[in-house]
């Protein structure tokens, strides 16, 4: 592909004068192949898969920033909703109900995700999540009840819940659990203004490829790994609507979807 000098200059202007930047690059990572009936083995696989897949994510991001002069504000990871991965060991079996081995519960996965995120140097990791719009599996419920502790004891892990959809309706039991998690997460971080609650998002119709924090997760319809690129545009839009022209109305600029001077 050959770019004209005009295109190059135009792009440079967007970066230097119009606040265009890459808001985030988010690597989606499938963790379904990490499931195991032994929680510690599953957690170990989760750590290995994330640190292997995203080993060079921040490094390459930094290289692109340096090479092209494009600011990349955040580097992030989204993973398979963890209740789907942990379902094999956080099931409703007698062993799980009895608590399994000490430290084998949902917090093992929260701590593992945090450790992996720290290791690869990303800003956030989304996917301490459960999709419960039709109902809850035993693993879903254990993950949801662990969300406040998971968010309060980590810095990078983000949680999300899908509690409703246009096909299933609204799962009011899950809505109540989500509200309780929101409240408890805030209470557990009262010294920081309830900050942990800002890493929990409750959805209707959550898209399965959502790269936006705190609600990012890597849904089951995705490939093994994928990189999402989010571009920031408000500065460019503002540039197109300079102060003196805002009084002219929308019509001249929007009549055929193109910008008119």
């Amino acid at each position: 592909m050959i770019f004209s000098p005009f295109e190059i200059a135009e792009t440079l202007r967007m970066f230097t004068e119009e606040n265009l930047d890459v808001r985030t690059i988010t690597m989606g990572i499938n963790l379904l192949d990490c499931a195991d009936s032994d929680a510690r083995r599953a957690a170990s696989r989760v750590y290995d898969k994330i640190t292997r897949s995203a080993a060079r994510l921040t490094e390459v991001g930094n290289q692109i920033e340096a090479e092209l002069g494009v600011p990349i504000i955040n580097k992030r990871i989204s993973v398979t909703p963890i209740s789907m991965v942990a379902g094999a060991c956080l099931d409703g079996s007698a062993r799980a109900a009895a608590g399994g081995r000490a430290g084998d519960g949902p917090m093992l996965f929260a701590e593992t995700l945090e450790r992996a995120a720290q290791e690869v140097g990303v800003d956030f990791l989304g996917g301490f999540s459960a999709l419960v719009h039709r109902g809850l599996t035993p693993a879903d419920e254990r993950i949801i009840r662990a969300i406040p502790a998971a968010l309060a004891s980590t810095d990078k892990v983000c949680a999300s819940l899908n509690v409703a959809s246009s096909r299933a309706g609204i799962n009011m039991d899950a809505v109540q659990l989500a509200a309780g998690a929101m409240k408890e997460a805030a209470d557990r971080t009262r010294d920081r203004g309830g900050f942990a609650a800002s890493r929990l998002v409750t959805f209707a119709n959550a898209p399965e490829d959502n790269p936006f924090m705190a609600g990012a997760f890597h849904g089951p319809g995705n490939p093994d790994t994928v990189v999402h690129v989010g571009v920031s545009g408000p500065g460019v839009v503002q540039r197109q609507l300079p102060a003196g022209e805002r009084r002219r109305g929308y019509g001249p600029r929007c009549r055929d979807g193109r910008t008119h001077a």
Partner: peptide
């Protein structure tokens, strides 16, 4: 959630009850 369900779109809630 009802707004999302009826309008066939994604809606989300991120609220912080500040202690």
């Amino acid at each position: 959630m009802a707004i999302g369900v009826m309008n066939h779109k994604t809606t989300a809630v991120r609220i912080i009850p500040v202690p």
